[in-house]
Nucleic acid binder design. Structure first.
Lengths: 325, 325
DNA sequence: TTGTAGGCGTTATCAC
DNA sequence: GTGATAACGCCTACAA
């Protein structure tokens, strides 16, 4: 219709500067009139690139993941890429099968969460030859690039904060560590930081749960029964912390007078509750943004390394000096 | 490698019953050994179907949308389809451009939120010839299938609940109605239900906000200053309601003794706060599931109609009899 | 039941 | 600067 070959149309669309201005405008006009849009499948088949990045998250609506996803989408869009999202529900098998699907779909790169996976998954990843990275974890030594906070260090800092307030008896409502190396790292970060000052969490002071408020309440109750009762409770995520704080109020436990409660991940609710909650704030949007840029850099063959994303303790009213007894 | 033609491999993969058992196992074995996966681009190019459904939501992490997305993904996976998610941030232009991108990507169907859109978007949708539907709204008359609750009716029921408790002076913290026909329908549902019993919200009793707790607090403060002070406040979403209830507590307003506060959308937090919040619970996962099945049915050429998704009032402690004055 | 071959809409490699 | 034309990997008549 424009009186040119398909090759020229392709040039107009992909490398407009390589074509004469006259043709360019003529072709663009026709494209406009026809409402023509390039066929992504044909393009992918021919160029062996889809312009899509796959990402597999345990869940899509959790505070930190949600922020990372938003940021990632924006960063990818800025470089003309699309994000294909999948959800593993903390199930390694599902994660693997979702990865297969995304690869079948021809994603140019893959963003995963965490760094521990089955041998089968590992070998699949090494076979497929597309770049991938681990997000929400950090390990400078890792052969595959990591983009995330150092979970253990974040939690150690939280322990330091509480120890400096005089706390010596600790409890922890950890997020389930099964299939979750970030949660395990956070728990270990607490343990190690305590060990450094000669402290430890007694067995009955360490409980594990998923991530809803009801679970936080229930587990907080359980820790309350421990003797001696801890003066500081560290929660593995935001919802568990919210549950613990709400249950403390319901049980008439004075926070932070009798007991300090802290969390991990800073969602709006943490600061809006009657007793705002001390927590670890991870720059999750940076995780998403940097992960996007890193995986695109890898695709373009640039050398990339692991990047640690900053996190900080946000001190609020839920943590305070140890009770004088 | 299996000593068969590519056509046979294709049959083994797509219509295994049409191939002899011997060949089937032989081919499958080789597929396994090779780690071969079908190339989705080639498949799409050849069959003119990508097996992907696009969905554009205002946001991905909001309670009701998040649940719908999860359910949709599962329902699509059960029928061998992939969900491509995009986010419009309540911006009609962005929604349109995301739709274009998804269509370029070759999605077989589209799930949209709401039913009002620009003429340009409308005409684009009618041109592209791929099935699409409106979710989270219901309109039996609509030419394009709808899958969602009847926002207006849900809110009317809430008004009826409050009226039956004796309330006559109402305030509303509506979700911004700009670019949001669901929010507008909810607001109108309130208005109409009130009008039916000869009541109305005074101008200073109706405020609009987005959807975070801080905003709920701020707007609640504003309504508190209204004279006469309303005895019942209806919030347009869950976060606004949470903010209102928290601010009421902070301001020393007895809920529901002095004032009833209700919300829309039932997230876990609503029932876990010190004063659990009366709200409208929409079966959002049904929205997602039914939307997925409906759009797939449309793709397969089956006749489909609009489907109303159930919603119900969940009465909790935040609503009670009007104060005796 | 299985193989042959054309075509899907681009991109990329050559010529010109 | 532009046009032919051969891939790209699969699906699907059609033929055997």
């Amino acid at each position: 219709m424009a009186g040119v070959s398909t090759a020229t149309v392709s040039r107009v669309v992909n490398r407009p500067e390589s074509v004469s201005e006259e043709l360019r405008t003529r072709v663009n006009l026709v494209i406009e009139q026809l409402g023509w849009v390039p066929n992504a499948a044909a393009r992918a088949l021919s160029s062996n690139r889809t312009g899509a990045i796959g990402a597999i998250f345990p869940a899509l609506a959790l505070g930190d993941f949600a922020r990372a996803i938003d940021a990632m989408q924006d960063a990818l869009a800025a470089r003309n890429h699309l994000l294909l999202l999948a959800r593993s529900q903390y199930d390694p098998d599902l994660e693997f099968s979702q990865a297969r699907k995304l690869v079948e779909r021809g994603v140019d790169g893959l963003v995963l969460v965490g760094s521990t996976r089955s041998a089968a998954f590992e070998s699949f990843l090494s076979r497929i030859e597309i770049p991938y990275l681990n997000s929400f974890v950090f390990d400078a030594e890792s052969p595959v690039p990591c983009v995330g906070p150092d979970n253990a260090v974040s939690m150690s800092e939280m322990v330091d904060h509480l120890v400096s307030l005089g706390h010596r008896r600790f409890g922890m409502i950890a997020q389930t560590t099964r299939n979750n190396d970030r949660a395990a790292a956070r728990r270990d970060g607490v343990r190690n930081a305590l060990a450094r000052v000669g402290l430890a969490i007694p067995p009955q002071g360490l409980v594990e749960g998923e991530w809803d408020i009801a679970e936080g309440r229930k587990l907080f109750r359980r820790i309350l029964d421990a003797t001696p009762r801890p003066t500081a409770i560290i929660c593995g995520n935001s919802m568990l912390a919210v549950g613990a704080v709400l249950e403390a109020a319901a049980a008439g436990v004075d926070v932070p007078g009798e007991m300090s409660i802290v969390g991990y991940d800073d969602i709006e609710l943490m600061s809006e509750l009657p007793i705002p909650i001390t927590t670890v704030r991870v720059a999750s949007d940076d995780v998403g943004r940097v992960a996007a840029d890193t995986v695109l850099d890898m695709i373009e063959g640039r050398a990339v390394g692991s990047q640690r994303i900053r996190s900080q303790i946000v001190v609020r009213a839920s943590s305070g000096p140890v009770p004088s007894d």
